[in-house]
């Protein structure tokens, strides 16, 4: 990067940076600082006076069982979606990577759900599993399952997991496919000559060589589940029933929306900020390592 600076100039570079900076400062840094500041304030019950309370909002949060429940929900949701979408993305990519007829058509037919908005994906899945009229809900009922995601928390969780997985498979599929294409065929052929069967070749050669891709995808998927699935949850369950599908991001939104607890909502935002920073750091540590390979 150092040797590339080729033009001088006092005003031009700064004016080129100005538009981006203006937006970044006004809409990113100021609100982020305000969120931290707000998280240390507390309003009285009538919203008349505001008091600086240091970390009281955080200690209240840390003592709130409901918040731990939200964390648990987020963890379950993340693990399920990441596992399901990574494993099915990998399976489809391994199949599409074989020299078969129509591989490009399969690829096109598998990548488009990436473009569907999370909220729209949620609505599509809600329609299939809507207890009174959904086609698949009726099938479940005819098998004797009392399916009702509007009342049963586990059913609601299954529904948002399915919708979120459905949307994420295409992304994982694409990146696994790129990862598979980068594995030299000669390595796999050598193992085949040594008598390793396809399954053994996959687990001892292909899978370890794919592990950087898999790890990268894991962090991306967790970020996706934490933040981008907001639209799915809002359109399918609105966090319910009885808070069973309320993730951490959804709770920030819901608590602040009611307007009753801005300080608590801000404290939750700051916790989330810390999580994003940690995830991004992990991701970049890994990217650095991949560059060395």
């Amino acid at each position: 990067m150092e040797r590339r600076a080729l033009f001088g100039g006092k005003v031009l570079p700064y004016s080129l940076l100005l538009p981006q900076f203006a937006i970044v400062v006004v809409f990113f840094y100021v609100p982020a600082v305000q969120a931290v500041w707000q998280s240390m304030l507390m309003q009285d019950a009538f919203g008349i006076s505001t008091e600086f309370v240091w970390f009281e909002n955080y200690t209240i949060l840390a003592a709130n069982p409901e918040y731990y429940r939200t964390m648990g929900t987020t963890a379950v949701f993340s693990v399920l979606v990441a596992f399901l979408s990574l494993s099915s993305g990998l399976l489809l990519a391994v199949m599409a990577d074989k020299q078969i007829k129509g591989a490009t058509i399969y690829k096109t037919m598998l990548i488009w759900p990436y473009a569907v908005a999370p909220a729209v994906a949620g609505v599509l899945w809600l329609f299939m599993f809507q207890p009174s009229l959904g086609m698949l809900a009726k099938a479940l009922r005819s098998w004797g399952i009392d399916w009702n995601p509007l009342l049963n928390g586990n059913h609601a969780m299954i529904l948002v997991v399915l919708a979120a997985t459905w949307k994420q498979i295409s992304y994982n599929f694409l990146f696994f496919l790129a990862g598979l294409a980068a594995i030299p065929k000669s390595v796999i052929e050598a193992a085949a000559i040594d008598g390793a069967r396809p399954m053994r070749r996959f687990w001892t050669i292909v899978f370890p060589l794919l592990s950087p891709t898999a790890f990268f995808l894991l962090t991306v998927n967790i970020v996706y589940v934490f933040f981008d699935t907001f639209g799915i949850i809002d359109s399918v369950t609105s966090g319910g029933p009885a808070g069973n599908t309320t993730t951490m991001v959804y709770k920030v939104y819901a608590d602040g929306k009611l307007g009753s607890d801005l300080g608590g909502s801000a404290a939750q935002s700051v916790v989330l900020m810390a999580i994003v920073i940690a995830l991004t750091a992990v991701q970049f540590k890994f990217v650095e390592r991949r560059v060395q390979y």
């Binding site: 100021v30 991001v249 801000a266 900020m273």
Partner: peptide, 15 residues
């Protein structure tokens, strides 16, 4: 990159 809109919803809204 580390400040997605979800973590600064209400302050950004207010601005």
């Amino acid at each position: 990159l580390m400040l997605p809109v979800e973590v600064r919803i209400y302050p950004t809204y207010k601005i």
